[in-house]
């Protein structure tokens, strides 16, 4: 059961990364990277590293997304 969930989350990480690379909308890329941070946090949780999972949730999902959006507000949203 655990291996199935971990493999599913890893596959979804790969799909989300491909979507991040191919999109032209930078806000969309930020949202998708937040989703990928959620997946990685759950993988850490399932591999029994709850401390690292807490740090990943805080830094990967919360702080980095917020800072990217703050930076994006001073730039253009769509990539050429």
């Amino acid at each position: 059961m655990m291996e199935l969930i971990v493999n599913l989350l890893l596959a979804s990480c790969v799909m989300l990364t491909a979507a991040i690379v191919y999109t032209k909308d930078l806000l969309l890329a930020v949202v998708l990277s937040g989703a990928e941070g959620v997946m990685v946090a759950v993988i850490f949780y399932l591999l029994l590293a709850p401390d690292i999972a807490l740090v990943q949730v805080a830094a990967g999902v919360g702080i980095s997304t917020a800072f990217f959006i703050v930076g994006l507000r001073k730039l253009r949203r769509h990539e050429e």
Binding site: P50, D51, A53, L54, V55, A58, A59, G62, I63
Partner: peptide, 12 residues
């Protein structure tokens, strides 16, 4: 699980 960094980020 938890600690200073985790609690601090939640306080932020």
């Amino acid at each position: 699980p938890g600690g200073g960094f985790q609690g601090g980020s939640i306080m932020a």
